[in-house]
């Protein structure tokens, strides 16, 4: 068994942290794991891709387009950029967060979030849009979008037990945000769980 997860984000959104939580949860579950990342020179605000491979025995920190079981998108434009990583049976879980890059803002200033959502659904019909910002803000932590998406991923994939995810979050995140992160994880899990059955039927 190998599960491949691609995390697409804008630098600073917590894509790498999300990958690290998945790596912790994998090792806690007795699985082998590799994660890799593609990021630019900047500390933040560039395109960031994290690859996560989990399985009984995995080798590479990276996979190629057409191989991902799940695309976890923390931002719409980055999700659109990387949608070709999904394999035909793959599922996209995408936060409705819209941060157009500079060129898109300048060239198409009238574009909207709804257009981006429409486009990604057209590109991949098995896309679940998660109102991640709203869910995170309800918990008072707009930076917890990554944890909401972690919950959504686990609801759809059932890779890890809640217990292992919680332990992983406690190991990876700073103590002061652990509780709100776990709550965000549960919120995302419940949201995706509720729409999962109807969606995947």
């Amino acid at each position: 068994m190998v599960i491949r997860i691609l995390i697409a984000s804008v630098g600073g959104q917590g894509g790498l942290t999300l990958a690290r939580v998945l790596a912790e949860a994998a090792v806690l579950s007795g699985l082998s794991v590799r994660t890799g990342e593609t990021l630019g020179m900047a500390q933040r605000y560039g395109s960031v891709v994290s690859y996560v491979q989990v399985g009984s025995r995995v080798y590479t920190p990276k996979f190629t387009p057409g191989e991902a079981d799940y695309l976890v998108g923390l931002e719409l434009v980055e999700s659109i950029r990387n949608i070709h990583y999904l394999k035909p049976s793959g599922v996209a879980l995408v936060a409705d967060e819209y941060r157009p890059p500079y060129t898109l803002s300048v060239e198409n200033p009238f574009n909207t979030r709804d257009q981006a959502i429409e486009l990604i659904k057209k590109l991949e019909s098995k896309t679940i849009i998660i109102p991640a910002r709203r869910l995170a803000i309800e918990l008072g932590n707009p930076r917890a979008i990554n944890m909401v998406m972690l919950g959504s991923l686990n609801a759809v994939s059932n890779i890890f037990s809640h217990d292992k995810v919680e332990q992983a979050v406690r190991k990876v995140l700073p103590a002061r945000v652990v509780e709100s992160s776990i709550k965000a994880y549960i919120k995302g899990y419940e949201y995706a769980q509720a729409i999962r059955n109807s969606f995947l039927a």
């Binding site: 560039g46 387009p65 949608i83």
Partner: peptide, 16 residues
């Protein structure tokens, strides 16, 4: 599985 071709998306160069 032959991958689909990527959707042309504006680049996001690393900014200040």
């Amino acid at each position: 599985d032959q991958p689909r071709s990527p959707h042309k998306t504006p680049r996001r160069p690393p900014p200040l």
